[in-house]
Design a protein around this nucleic acid. Structure first.
Lengths: 200, 200
DNA sequence: GTCTATACATTGATAGAC
DNA sequence: GTCTATCAATGTATAGAC
Protein backbone atom coordinates (compact mmCIF):
# COMPACT_ATOMS: atom_id res chain seq x y z
CA UNK A 1 0.00 0.00 0.00
CA UNK A 2 2.75 2.42 0.91
CA UNK A 3 5.07 3.85 -1.66
CA UNK A 4 8.10 2.41 0.07
CA UNK A 5 9.59 -1.02 0.15
CA UNK A 6 6.90 -3.65 0.60
CA UNK A 7 6.91 -6.21 3.37
CA UNK A 8 9.85 -8.62 3.13
CA UNK A 9 12.31 -6.81 5.41
CA UNK A 10 15.60 -5.01 4.81
CA UNK A 11 15.91 -1.27 4.89
CA UNK A 12 17.08 -0.09 1.51
CA UNK A 13 15.96 -2.47 -1.24
CA UNK A 14 12.91 -2.08 -3.40
CA UNK A 15 11.27 -5.08 -5.01
CA UNK A 16 9.40 -5.09 -8.31
CA UNK A 17 6.03 -4.44 -6.68
CA UNK A 18 7.25 -1.40 -4.82
CA UNK A 19 8.80 0.12 -7.90
CA UNK A 20 5.75 -0.78 -9.96
CA UNK A 21 3.36 1.09 -7.68
CA UNK A 22 5.41 4.27 -7.82
CA UNK A 23 5.91 3.97 -11.57
CA UNK A 24 2.21 3.50 -12.32
CA UNK A 25 1.31 6.50 -10.19
CA UNK A 26 3.83 8.62 -12.08
CA UNK A 27 2.70 7.32 -15.47
CA UNK A 28 -0.85 8.33 -14.63
CA UNK A 29 0.22 11.73 -13.39
CA UNK A 30 2.42 12.78 -16.29
CA UNK A 31 1.66 10.22 -18.99
CA UNK A 32 3.86 7.26 -19.85
CA UNK A 33 5.97 9.05 -22.45
CA UNK A 34 6.42 12.18 -20.40
CA UNK A 35 7.64 10.16 -17.41
CA UNK A 36 11.38 9.53 -17.70
CA UNK A 37 13.31 6.85 -15.89
CA UNK A 38 15.16 9.70 -14.24
CA UNK A 39 11.93 11.03 -12.74
CA UNK A 40 11.07 7.57 -11.44
CA UNK A 41 14.52 7.26 -9.93
CA UNK A 42 14.05 10.60 -8.20
CA UNK A 43 10.66 9.62 -6.78
CA UNK A 44 12.06 6.29 -5.57
CA UNK A 45 15.20 7.82 -4.12
CA UNK A 46 17.26 5.56 -6.37
CA UNK A 47 19.59 5.94 -9.28
CA UNK A 48 18.40 5.22 -12.80
CA UNK A 49 20.49 2.09 -13.09
CA UNK A 50 19.01 0.66 -9.91
CA UNK A 51 15.68 0.58 -11.70
CA UNK A 52 17.22 -1.31 -14.59
CA UNK A 53 18.30 -3.95 -12.11
CA UNK A 54 14.62 -4.75 -11.48
CA UNK A 55 13.19 -4.18 -14.95
CA UNK A 56 14.80 -4.77 -18.31
CA UNK A 57 13.28 -1.68 -19.87
CA UNK A 58 10.73 1.06 -19.37
CA UNK A 59 8.41 -0.92 -21.59
CA UNK A 60 8.59 -3.88 -19.26
CA UNK A 61 7.33 -1.79 -16.36
CA UNK A 62 4.32 -0.81 -18.45
CA UNK A 63 3.80 -4.43 -19.48
CA UNK A 64 3.57 -5.65 -15.88
CA UNK A 65 1.09 -2.95 -14.92
CA UNK A 66 -1.18 -3.50 -17.93
CA UNK A 67 -1.18 -7.27 -17.42
CA UNK A 68 -2.31 -6.80 -13.85
CA UNK A 69 -5.24 -4.59 -14.85
CA UNK A 70 -6.29 -6.82 -17.74
CA UNK A 71 -6.18 -9.99 -15.66
CA UNK A 72 -8.52 -8.46 -13.11
CA UNK A 73 -10.97 -7.28 -15.75
CA UNK A 74 -10.93 -10.62 -17.55
CA UNK A 75 -11.61 -12.38 -14.27
CA UNK A 76 -14.83 -10.38 -13.91
CA UNK A 77 -16.27 -12.01 -17.02
CA UNK A 78 -14.70 -15.42 -16.53
CA UNK A 79 -15.51 -15.88 -12.85
CA UNK A 80 -19.03 -14.57 -13.17
CA UNK A 81 -21.50 -17.30 -12.01
CA UNK A 82 -23.41 -17.77 -15.25
CA UNK A 83 -26.01 -19.90 -13.48
CA UNK A 84 -26.76 -17.40 -10.73
CA UNK A 85 -30.01 -16.44 -12.41
CA UNK A 86 -31.40 -13.50 -14.32
CA UNK A 87 -30.33 -14.87 -17.68
CA UNK A 88 -28.04 -12.81 -19.89
CA UNK A 89 -29.39 -9.60 -18.38
CA UNK A 90 -28.55 -10.88 -14.91
CA UNK A 91 -25.07 -11.84 -16.04
CA UNK A 92 -24.60 -8.41 -17.60
CA UNK A 93 -25.62 -6.63 -14.42
CA UNK A 94 -23.18 -8.72 -12.37
CA UNK A 95 -20.41 -7.95 -14.88
CA UNK A 96 -21.16 -4.21 -14.73
CA UNK A 97 -20.94 -4.27 -10.94
CA UNK A 98 -17.79 -6.38 -11.03
CA UNK A 99 -16.12 -4.01 -13.47
CA UNK A 100 -16.87 -1.01 -11.26
CA UNK A 101 -15.30 -2.82 -8.33
CA UNK A 102 -12.17 -3.68 -10.32
CA UNK A 103 -11.87 -0.05 -11.41
CA UNK A 104 -12.07 1.16 -7.85
CA UNK A 105 -9.85 -1.56 -6.37
CA UNK A 106 -7.18 -1.30 -9.06
CA UNK A 107 -7.64 2.34 -9.93
CA UNK A 108 -4.03 3.15 -10.92
CA UNK A 109 -3.42 0.11 -13.12
CA UNK A 110 -6.81 0.35 -14.85
CA UNK A 111 -6.36 4.08 -15.38
CA UNK A 112 -3.08 3.35 -17.12
CA UNK A 113 -4.69 0.64 -19.23
CA UNK A 114 -7.44 2.94 -20.43
CA UNK A 115 -4.91 5.48 -21.70
CA UNK A 116 -2.91 3.07 -23.83
CA UNK A 117 -2.90 4.00 -27.51
CA UNK A 118 -1.02 1.18 -29.26
CA UNK A 119 2.34 2.77 -29.91
CA UNK A 120 4.49 -0.22 -29.01
CA UNK A 121 4.16 -4.00 -29.10
CA UNK A 122 3.38 -4.02 -25.39
CA UNK A 123 0.57 -1.53 -25.91
CA UNK A 124 -0.81 -3.32 -28.95
CA UNK A 125 -0.95 -6.60 -27.06
CA UNK A 126 -2.85 -4.90 -24.26
CA UNK A 127 -5.28 -3.30 -26.72
CA UNK A 128 -5.89 -6.69 -28.27
CA UNK A 129 -6.88 -8.16 -24.91
CA UNK A 130 -9.14 -5.17 -24.30
CA UNK A 131 -10.92 -5.75 -27.60
CA UNK A 132 -11.55 -9.38 -26.68
CA UNK A 133 -13.08 -8.20 -23.42
CA UNK A 134 -15.27 -5.70 -25.29
CA UNK A 135 -16.53 -8.41 -27.63
CA UNK A 136 -17.63 -10.51 -24.70
CA UNK A 137 -19.59 -7.60 -23.27
CA UNK A 138 -21.24 -6.92 -26.60
CA UNK A 139 -22.22 -10.60 -26.87
CA UNK A 140 -23.79 -10.37 -23.41
CA UNK A 141 -25.82 -7.28 -24.36
CA UNK A 142 -26.89 -8.96 -27.57
CA UNK A 143 -28.04 -12.07 -25.72
CA UNK A 144 -29.98 -9.96 -23.24
CA UNK A 145 -31.71 -8.21 -26.13
CA UNK A 146 -32.64 -11.56 -27.68
CA UNK A 147 -34.10 -12.64 -24.36
CA UNK A 148 -36.32 -9.58 -24.46
CA UNK A 149 -34.83 -8.16 -21.27
CA UNK A 150 -33.13 -5.19 -22.94
CA UNK A 151 -34.48 -2.83 -25.57
CA UNK A 152 -33.34 -3.81 -29.05
CA UNK A 153 -33.76 -0.47 -30.77
CA UNK A 154 -30.14 0.34 -29.89
CA UNK A 155 -27.33 -1.61 -31.53
CA UNK A 156 -25.76 -4.04 -29.05
CA UNK A 157 -22.25 -2.88 -29.87
CA UNK A 158 -23.16 0.78 -29.37
CA UNK A 159 -24.99 0.04 -26.13
CA UNK A 160 -22.05 -1.97 -24.80
CA UNK A 161 -19.55 0.73 -25.73
CA UNK A 162 -21.59 3.56 -24.22
CA UNK A 163 -22.22 1.62 -21.03
CA UNK A 164 -18.57 0.75 -20.56
CA UNK A 165 -17.61 4.25 -21.58
CA UNK A 166 -19.64 5.40 -18.59
CA UNK A 167 -17.93 2.89 -16.32
CA UNK A 168 -14.43 3.59 -17.62
CA UNK A 169 -14.89 7.32 -17.14
CA UNK A 170 -14.93 6.67 -13.41
CA UNK A 171 -11.13 6.63 -13.40
CA UNK A 172 -11.16 10.28 -14.43
CA UNK A 173 -12.66 11.52 -11.18
CA UNK A 174 -13.11 8.78 -8.57
CA UNK A 175 -10.74 8.96 -5.63
CA UNK A 176 -10.77 6.36 -2.84
CA UNK A 177 -12.04 7.67 0.46
CA UNK A 178 -14.57 9.96 -1.18
CA UNK A 179 -18.24 10.10 -0.35
CA UNK A 180 -19.23 7.19 -2.57
CA UNK A 181 -18.01 3.69 -1.93
CA UNK A 182 -17.64 1.16 -4.70
CA UNK A 183 -20.97 -0.51 -3.96
CA UNK A 184 -22.90 2.73 -4.08
CA UNK A 185 -21.13 3.72 -7.27
CA UNK A 186 -21.95 0.38 -8.87
CA UNK A 187 -25.59 0.90 -7.88
CA UNK A 188 -25.59 4.30 -9.57
CA UNK A 189 -24.03 2.94 -12.75
CA UNK A 190 -26.50 0.07 -12.98
CA UNK A 191 -29.41 2.38 -12.19
CA UNK A 192 -28.54 4.80 -15.00
CA UNK A 193 -27.53 2.15 -17.54
CA UNK A 194 -30.62 0.00 -17.03
CA UNK A 195 -33.32 2.43 -15.89
CA UNK A 196 -32.07 5.89 -16.81
CA UNK A 197 -32.08 9.21 -15.00
CA UNK A 198 -35.68 10.15 -15.76
CA UNK A 199 -38.13 9.97 -12.92
CA UNK A 200 -41.20 7.87 -13.54
CA UNK B 1 -10.90 19.83 -44.54
CA UNK B 2 -8.06 18.18 -46.41
CA UNK B 3 -4.69 17.54 -44.87
CA UNK B 4 -2.90 19.62 -47.48
CA UNK B 5 -2.65 23.33 -47.99
CA UNK B 6 -6.05 24.90 -47.59
CA UNK B 7 -7.64 27.30 -50.02
CA UNK B 8 -5.70 30.51 -50.53
CA UNK B 9 -3.56 29.58 -53.52
CA UNK B 10 0.12 28.82 -54.06
CA UNK B 11 1.47 25.33 -54.45
CA UNK B 12 3.95 24.74 -51.69
CA UNK B 13 2.97 26.64 -48.55
CA UNK B 14 1.05 25.33 -45.60
CA UNK B 15 -0.93 27.69 -43.44
CA UNK B 16 -1.62 27.28 -39.71
CA UNK B 17 -4.88 25.41 -40.26
CA UNK B 18 -3.30 22.86 -42.55
CA UNK B 19 -0.45 22.19 -40.18
CA UNK B 20 -2.84 22.09 -37.25
CA UNK B 21 -4.99 19.37 -38.79
CA UNK B 22 -2.01 17.12 -39.44
CA UNK B 23 -0.55 17.81 -36.01
CA UNK B 24 -3.76 17.02 -34.14
CA UNK B 25 -4.15 13.76 -36.04
CA UNK B 26 -0.60 12.77 -35.12
CA UNK B 27 -1.04 13.81 -31.49
CA UNK B 28 -4.10 11.57 -31.27
CA UNK B 29 -2.35 8.68 -32.95
CA UNK B 30 0.87 8.64 -30.91
CA UNK B 31 0.11 10.93 -28.00
CA UNK B 32 1.28 14.53 -27.67
CA UNK B 33 4.57 13.73 -25.93
CA UNK B 34 5.44 10.84 -28.21
CA UNK B 35 4.91 12.99 -31.30
CA UNK B 36 8.08 14.91 -32.12
CA UNK B 37 8.32 17.99 -34.29
CA UNK B 38 10.48 15.87 -36.55
CA UNK B 39 7.64 13.41 -37.08
CA UNK B 40 5.26 16.25 -37.87
CA UNK B 41 7.75 17.65 -40.37
CA UNK B 42 7.99 14.26 -42.04
CA UNK B 43 4.22 13.90 -42.30
CA UNK B 44 3.91 17.40 -43.71
CA UNK B 45 6.81 16.99 -46.12
CA UNK B 46 8.47 19.97 -44.49
CA UNK B 47 11.56 20.62 -42.44
CA UNK B 48 11.31 21.15 -38.69
CA UNK B 49 12.18 24.81 -38.95
CA UNK B 50 9.37 25.40 -41.44
CA UNK B 51 6.94 24.42 -38.71
CA UNK B 52 8.53 26.91 -36.34
CA UNK B 53 7.81 29.58 -38.90
CA UNK B 54 4.08 28.99 -38.33
CA UNK B 55 4.06 28.19 -34.62
CA UNK B 56 6.30 29.49 -31.89
CA UNK B 57 6.50 26.18 -30.08
CA UNK B 58 5.07 22.69 -29.91
CA UNK B 59 2.99 23.87 -26.99
CA UNK B 60 1.41 26.58 -29.11
CA UNK B 61 0.14 23.99 -31.58
CA UNK B 62 -1.55 22.15 -28.74
CA UNK B 63 -2.96 25.42 -27.41
CA UNK B 64 -4.68 26.24 -30.67
CA UNK B 65 -6.23 22.81 -30.97
CA UNK B 66 -7.52 22.74 -27.40
CA UNK B 67 -8.98 26.23 -27.67
CA UNK B 68 -10.90 25.18 -30.75
CA UNK B 69 -12.43 22.16 -29.02
CA UNK B 70 -13.26 24.05 -25.84
CA UNK B 71 -14.89 26.95 -27.68
CA UNK B 72 -17.21 24.56 -29.47
CA UNK B 73 -18.18 22.77 -26.27
CA UNK B 74 -18.74 26.01 -24.39
CA UNK B 75 -20.95 27.22 -27.22
CA UNK B 76 -23.23 24.21 -26.69
CA UNK B 77 -24.14 25.43 -23.22
CA UNK B 78 -24.07 29.13 -23.98
CA UNK B 79 -26.06 29.09 -27.21
CA UNK B 80 -28.65 26.65 -25.91
CA UNK B 81 -32.12 28.28 -26.13
CA UNK B 82 -33.00 28.26 -22.44
CA UNK B 83 -36.59 29.24 -23.21
CA UNK B 84 -37.22 26.47 -25.72
CA UNK B 85 -39.28 24.52 -23.20
CA UNK B 86 -38.88 21.41 -21.12
CA UNK B 87 -37.44 23.25 -18.16
CA UNK B 88 -34.02 22.26 -16.87
CA UNK B 89 -34.56 18.69 -18.08
CA UNK B 90 -35.28 19.98 -21.57
CA UNK B 91 -32.20 22.17 -21.48
CA UNK B 92 -30.11 19.20 -20.33
CA UNK B 93 -31.36 17.00 -23.15
CA UNK B 94 -30.54 19.68 -25.72
CA UNK B 95 -27.06 20.07 -24.21
CA UNK B 96 -26.45 16.31 -24.34
CA UNK B 97 -27.42 16.21 -28.01
CA UNK B 98 -25.34 19.28 -28.76
CA UNK B 99 -22.30 17.78 -27.06
CA UNK B 100 -22.58 14.59 -29.11
CA UNK B 101 -22.71 16.66 -32.28
CA UNK B 102 -19.63 18.66 -31.28
CA UNK B 103 -17.77 15.43 -30.53
CA UNK B 104 -18.60 14.03 -33.93
CA UNK B 105 -18.01 17.25 -35.86
CA UNK B 106 -14.74 18.08 -34.12
CA UNK B 107 -13.63 14.57 -33.35
CA UNK B 108 -9.83 15.11 -33.56
CA UNK B 109 -9.70 18.29 -31.49
CA UNK B 110 -12.10 17.00 -28.82
CA UNK B 111 -10.24 13.69 -28.66
CA UNK B 112 -7.06 15.60 -27.95
CA UNK B 113 -8.79 17.71 -25.31
CA UNK B 114 -10.08 14.67 -23.46
CA UNK B 115 -6.57 13.25 -23.16
CA UNK B 116 -4.99 16.32 -21.61
CA UNK B 117 -3.53 15.65 -18.17
CA UNK B 118 -2.34 19.03 -16.93
CA UNK B 119 1.40 18.76 -17.42
CA UNK B 120 2.00 22.26 -18.76
CA UNK B 121 0.41 25.68 -18.37
CA UNK B 122 -1.40 25.23 -21.65
CA UNK B 123 -2.88 21.94 -20.45
CA UNK B 124 -3.80 23.31 -17.05
CA UNK B 125 -5.64 26.24 -18.61
CA UNK B 126 -7.57 23.82 -20.79
CA UNK B 127 -8.43 21.63 -17.80
CA UNK B 128 -9.69 24.66 -15.94
CA UNK B 129 -12.09 25.51 -18.77
CA UNK B 130 -13.25 21.89 -18.82
CA UNK B 131 -14.02 22.01 -15.13
CA UNK B 132 -16.11 25.13 -15.59
CA UNK B 133 -18.04 23.32 -18.30
CA UNK B 134 -18.56 20.33 -16.00
CA UNK B 135 -19.90 22.55 -13.25
CA UNK B 136 -22.51 23.98 -15.57
CA UNK B 137 -23.67 20.50 -16.51
CA UNK B 138 -23.89 19.48 -12.87
CA UNK B 139 -25.96 22.59 -12.12
CA UNK B 140 -28.31 21.64 -14.94
CA UNK B 141 -28.74 18.11 -13.58
CA UNK B 142 -29.32 19.47 -10.12
CA UNK B 143 -31.98 21.89 -11.38
CA UNK B 144 -33.73 19.09 -13.26
CA UNK B 145 -33.79 17.02 -10.08
CA UNK B 146 -35.32 19.92 -8.14
CA UNK B 147 -38.00 20.22 -10.81
CA UNK B 148 -38.87 16.60 -10.21
CA UNK B 149 -38.02 15.60 -13.77
CA UNK B 150 -34.97 13.53 -12.86
CA UNK B 151 -34.55 10.99 -10.08
CA UNK B 152 -32.84 12.50 -7.06
CA UNK B 153 -31.51 9.31 -5.46
CA UNK B 154 -28.28 9.77 -7.45
CA UNK B 155 -25.97 12.66 -6.62
CA UNK B 156 -26.17 15.34 -9.32
CA UNK B 157 -22.42 15.52 -9.66
CA UNK B 158 -22.10 11.74 -10.06
CA UNK B 159 -24.97 11.62 -12.55
CA UNK B 160 -23.44 14.45 -14.60
CA UNK B 161 -20.00 12.83 -14.62
CA UNK B 162 -21.29 9.41 -15.59
CA UNK B 163 -23.48 10.82 -18.34
CA UNK B 164 -20.68 12.88 -19.83
CA UNK B 165 -18.31 9.97 -19.35
CA UNK B 166 -20.60 8.04 -21.65
CA UNK B 167 -20.65 10.86 -24.19
CA UNK B 168 -16.90 11.48 -24.05
CA UNK B 169 -16.17 7.80 -24.57
CA UNK B 170 -17.57 8.20 -28.09
CA UNK B 171 -14.20 9.56 -29.24
CA UNK B 172 -12.65 6.18 -28.44
CA UNK B 173 -14.54 4.32 -31.15
CA UNK B 174 -16.67 6.59 -33.35
CA UNK B 175 -15.40 7.06 -36.86
CA UNK B 176 -17.17 9.32 -39.38
CA UNK B 177 -18.81 7.45 -42.19
CA UNK B 178 -19.78 4.54 -39.98
CA UNK B 179 -23.24 3.09 -39.67
CA UNK B 180 -24.45 5.60 -37.11
CA UNK B 181 -24.77 9.26 -37.90
CA UNK B 182 -24.48 11.93 -35.23
CA UNK B 183 -28.25 12.31 -34.86
CA UNK B 184 -28.80 8.61 -34.33
CA UNK B 185 -25.92 8.47 -31.89
CA UNK B 186 -27.34 11.40 -29.93
CA UNK B 187 -30.69 9.59 -29.80
CA UNK B 188 -29.00 6.50 -28.37
CA UNK B 189 -27.11 8.50 -25.74
CA UNK B 190 -30.24 10.34 -24.63
CA UNK B 191 -32.25 7.11 -24.63
CA UNK B 192 -29.80 5.32 -22.35
CA UNK B 193 -29.06 8.28 -20.09
CA UNK B 194 -32.70 9.20 -19.53
CA UNK B 195 -34.61 5.92 -19.94
CA UNK B 196 -32.02 3.16 -19.62
CA UNK B 197 -31.43 -0.04 -21.54
CA UNK B 198 -34.06 -2.13 -19.77
CA UNK B 199 -37.17 -2.99 -21.73
CA UNK B 200 -40.42 -2.04 -20.09
C1' DG C 1 21.09 -4.08 -4.91
C1' DT C 2 22.95 0.15 -5.42
C1' DC C 3 26.11 3.44 -7.24
C1' DT C 4 28.98 6.72 -10.79
C1' DA C 5 30.11 7.41 -15.31
C1' DT C 6 29.08 7.29 -19.86
C1' DA C 7 27.49 5.91 -24.59
C1' DC C 8 24.56 7.28 -28.06
C1' DA C 9 20.04 8.76 -30.07
C1' DT C 10 16.55 12.07 -30.16
C1' DT C 11 14.43 15.96 -28.52
C1' DG C 12 12.67 21.12 -29.01
C1' DA C 13 14.35 25.07 -30.74
C1' DT C 14 17.52 28.71 -33.23
C1' DA C 15 20.68 30.98 -36.86
C1' DG C 16 21.10 32.41 -41.14
C1' DA C 17 21.11 31.45 -46.31
C1' DC C 18 17.96 31.37 -50.25
C1' DG D 1 8.06 30.28 -46.59
C1' DT D 2 11.32 26.91 -46.84
C1' DC D 3 15.84 25.05 -46.31
C1' DT D 4 20.57 23.10 -43.99
C1' DA D 5 23.22 23.09 -40.10
C1' DT D 6 23.63 23.17 -35.51
C1' DC D 7 22.81 23.69 -30.37
C1' DA D 8 22.10 22.34 -25.57
C1' DA D 9 19.29 19.35 -23.05
C1' DT D 10 17.32 15.14 -22.14
C1' DG D 11 16.04 10.47 -23.33
C1' DT D 12 16.95 5.17 -22.65
C1' DA D 13 20.11 2.05 -21.61
C1' DT D 14 24.77 -0.13 -20.37
C1' DA D 15 29.50 -0.98 -18.01
C1' DG D 16 31.67 -1.90 -14.19
C1' DA D 17 32.97 -0.71 -9.24
C1' DC D 18 31.37 -1.43 -4.49
Amino acid sequence: MSEMQSARRGRPGYDQQGILAVAVAAFNEYGYDATSIGMLAERLGLSKSAIYHHFGSKDEILDRALDSALSSLEAVVEDEPADAGGGAAGRLERVLRGAVHVLVDQLPAVTLLLRVRGNTDVERTALSRRRTFDRRITALVSAAQSEGALRDDIDASVAARLTFGMINSIVEWYRPGGREGADRLADDVVAIALDGLRKR
